[in-house]
Simulated scan of single mutants.
Amino acid sequence: MSPDPAIGTEHRDLPTVVLLHGGPWYRDSWGYDPEVQLLANRGYAVLQVDFRGSTGYGKAHTQAAIGQFAGRMHDDVIDALNWAINQGYTDRNRVAIYGSSYGGYAALVGAAFTPHRFAAAISYTGMSDLVDLSARIVRQQHRALPHPGALPRPPPGRTHHGRGLTLGPVRGAAGPAAAGGR
């Protein structure tokens, strides 16, 4: 068995996984995390970001997430990534963004709005339709949100039907036959 190549070497320009927590009204904490340890053991730097909206930093920090799910919250992630690159820890060409729940949504935001920053994006059980999510939250859960208006309302012309299925106008769809289906 060969010795671990990471021991005794300077940890510079590493492939990096930006690992985003769910919630978003949650936070990462100091302690053992098997997911982080698995990635680090395989040679990845792991960057965890307590973006605005994360709990434990005061009411203003938590409420700063209102209306910013794909805005300033993503800016916080990019700012943290830029810091890791500027410190020399991260190879800018080998960065993945990964998360579950809200973190999965944030990974999709990274892939959609800043695709040039990420070589890969992984959304594990990520929210992908905030309008649908908002419509399905029961009244008791709405009270738990820092501000019920934090989630979007359906745009004009979109309605919710049955089990959370969101239907809207489809324009320019060629149909399954044109896409190689039967």
Rank of each mutant, 00 (worst) to 15 (best):
S100I: 03
I78Y: 04
D132E: 14
P169W: 09
P115V: 03
G175A: 07
P154H: 11
H160T: 10
V95H: 01
N93G: 09
P115F: 03
T9K: 15
I78Q: 08
G99C: 02
L14R: 13
G180Y: 07
L20R: 00
P148N: 07
Y32F: 08
V77Q: 06
S101N: 14
P115A: 07
A144L: 11
K59D: 13
G126Y: 06
P15L: 09
G126E: 08
G67H: 02
R139I: 03
R171I: 06
P34M: 06
Y32N: 07
R12I: 04
P146Q: 10
L14K: 10
P156R: 15
R42M: 10
W83K: 06
H61D: 04
V95W: 02
S134C: 04
R27I: 01
G67Q: 01
A6C: 05
A64E: 02
A173M: 11
M1A: 13
R158L: 03
A6L: 15
G56R: 12
S29C: 05
P152T: 07
Y89C: 01
T90V: 04
T62I: 02
R182E: 10
A60I: 02
N93Q: 14
V49Q: 00
R94V: 05
Y98C: 05
P156N: 09
W25K: 04
L151I: 03
D28H: 15
A173I: 03
R52G: 04
G88Y: 09
D129W: 10
G23I: 00
G53S: 15
L151H: 02
G181W: 14
A112P: 01
A173Q: 13
A144F: 09
D129Y: 14
R52K: 12
R171T: 08
R92E: 12
P5M: 15
Y102I: 00
V95S: 01
H161N: 11
Y105F: 14
V109E: 03
M127A: 11
L19W: 08
G162Y: 13
Y44R: 05
P146E: 08
T114S: 15
G22R: 04
Y32S: 12
P155T: 05
A121H: 02
S123C: 05
G22D: 07
L165T: 14
R171F: 06
L14T: 05
R182L: 06
A121M: 03
S2I: 08
A178P: 07
G56M: 10
G88N: 10
D28K: 04
R136V: 09
G126K: 08
N82R: 13
Y105P: 01
T159S: 14
A179Q: 14
P169N: 10
A120Q: 02
I85P: 00
I122V: 13
A96K: 01
L20F: 03
Y32A: 10
Q87G: 10
G31Y: 11
M127K: 04
Q87N: 12
A80L: 07
D91F: 05
W83N: 09
W25D: 06
I97H: 01
L145Q: 13
T166L: 09
L145N: 11
P169M: 08
P148W: 05
